[in-house]
């Protein structure tokens, strides 16, 4: 088969992705068989091999359709090389502030060692937070849109700094013309009505951590005393969500996400997604744990079961959508027509060159998961970036420069996977974490299927309405 296409089956449909154009086609079984032979120029060979299997007239008709797609640039599109729009040096546009390297939960899969990242429990001072705002403005060049995430640990354990830094960022916006998008990732334990109102008034997008069903969440996300947290958290999240009803938060991109982690203990994670939806939340994500702990982390042996579960989730997702009760699932939210530009697909999350994490003491790291990892300190807010080789190393670590990614069908959708995971498993950001790649590819197939079906069903409804 031609290496510039990927064909897969989902829920009985056969889908074709043209890798270098991003075109998606739903094809019949005969076209799939043709494409196992067809290279774009060998019609005679196709007819010779398949005429016994299919009527010749049908084969010729299908070949005509394939040639039309080639002429439209939607089949066998030419290879993509690094475009001139992907500049050699990145500009920092996004910071993750570790405002509290301390936490009131003890999640069993925490990559931050219970919140302190192995650096001792501490919180960021207001002065350090303000310096981070200035650093981002200075480092972002002509870019107008900037992003800042308040992270931890648990950021609400240091609400004073959050408020002070936000106030300062809004003041600097007026002085510089920059626009800050602010996000907070919180476990919700300290979400009081007063804090919710303040977060709403300051246009905070919220990422609320919950692992789905009560028994799943409480087994993985206990408090410091080892007690379950579900009842307390869900009560707070519901109040938070209710406070935003009737506002135009989603319209303005100020989303309220519920985000969970699944582990080897809940491979039936579809139930967790549906549980959160049943509780009234409609912007959801659950993601695979990345851990070397054999009790919760995944190996290749777990992949068939994980694939099966994504099939179940896809089915449930479509069922609810068709019944008019659809929800938003982060990994299925793929824009097939107007997705990001190629330069963005190469830079991905931007860790290490467009996106930095700021530790509570002002040290800079490539991202929140690298905080405290030996060999990955970039510099500090006071010194600036002193390890200038690291940003260049991360900038060059894109799919077209990685051997395993260069020929992978998913290369323009995954951005080469997570650097922190590659480092965790291989000690080398150029060596992708294989289990993560496999899960990502399955999710992408499900997402392409979901978006293709929703698009086709919409077309059918519009055609029927016109008739």
């Amino acid at each position: 088969m031609n290496e510039s296409i990927h064909i897969f089956e989902q829920e009985g449909e056969v889908l074709l992705l043209d890798i270098n154009s991003g075109a998606v086609h739903v094809i019949d079984a005969m076209v799939r068989d043709i494409l196992s032979v067809f290279t774009g120029e060998n019609d005679g060979e196709v007819l010779e091999k398949l005429t016994g299997q299919y009527p010749e007239a049908e084969l010729r008709e299908a070949l005509g359709e394939l040639h039309a797609l080639m002429e439209a640039g939607e089949l066998f599109a030419p290879d993509i090389n690094v475009p001139p729009t992907f500049r050699e040096q990145g500009l920092v546009k996004s910071l993750c502030l570790m405002v509290a390297q301390d936490c009131n939960l003890r999640c069993k899969y925490c990559f931050g060692d219970g919140g302190d990242y192995g650096m001792g429990r501490a919180v960021m001072s207001e002065e350090t937070g303000r310096k981070a705002v200035d650093f981002l403005i200075k480092s972002s060049g002509a870019r107008r849109h900037l992003e800042m995430d308040f992270f931890g640990g648990e950021p609400l354990m240091n609400f004073g700094t959050v408020k002070s830094v936000t106030e300062y960022a809004r003041q600097r916006e007026k002085e510089t013309g920059k626009k800050f998008k602010l996000t907070m990732t919180t476990n919700g334990m300290l979400l009081t009505d007063e804090k919710i109102k303040w977060l709403n008034d300051n246009d905070f997008a919220l990422v609320l951590s919950l692992d789905g069903r009560k028994e799943v969440n409480d087994a993985m996300r206990p408090d410091v005393g080892g007690h379950g947290t579900y009842d307390r958290i869900v009560k707070n999240f519901k109040r938070c969500l209710a406070s935003r009803e009737g506002g135009d938060y989603d319209y303005r991109g100020v989303y309220t996400f519920l985000r969970g982690t699944y582990t080897k203990k809940n491979l039936d994670f579809t139930e967790d997604v549906l549980s959160m939806n049943d509780e009234g939340f409609s912007i959801l994500s659950v993601e695979p744990v990345v851990s070397k702990n054999p009790e919760i982390g995944f190996t290749e042996a777990d992949l068939p079961r994980i694939y099966e579960e994504y099939d179940r989730l896809t089915h449930a997702y479509m069922e609810r959508h068709r019944a008019g009760k659809g929800f938003f699932f982060f990994h299925f939210n793929m824009d097939l027509s107007n997705g990001p530009c190629v330069a963005k697909r190469l830079s991905g999350c931007g860790a290490g060159h467009e996106y930095f994490a700021v530790a509570e003491n002002g040290d800079l790291y490539p991202c929140h998961q690298f905080v405290g990892r030996e060999g990955y300190r970039l510099g500090s807010l006071d010194e600036g970036v002193t390890n200038t080789e690291l940003p260049a190393h991360f900038r060059a670590c894109h799919v077209l420069n990685k051997e395993k990614c260069r020929s992978c069908w998913a290369r323009f959708f995954c951005s080469g996977g997570c650097h922190a995971n590659a480092d965790l498993f291989h000690g080398d950001i150029y060596e992708p974490y294989e289990v993560g790649c496999a899960i990502q590819k399955k999710r992408l197939e499900c997402a392409i299927y979901v978006q293709a079906m929703l698009a086709l069903e919409k077309q059918e409804r519009e055609t029927a309405a016109e008739a």
């Binding site: 005969m30 475009p83 293709a452």
Partner: peptide
Amino acid sequence: MKHIKTVNKPTMQKTLKTGGCGECQKN
């Protein structure tokens, strides 16, 4: 088309020349 249903009109190739502004949070 009888055998193939195309579901999108992607702009990825176009962005080889026009992308890279870094303002994403044009296409």
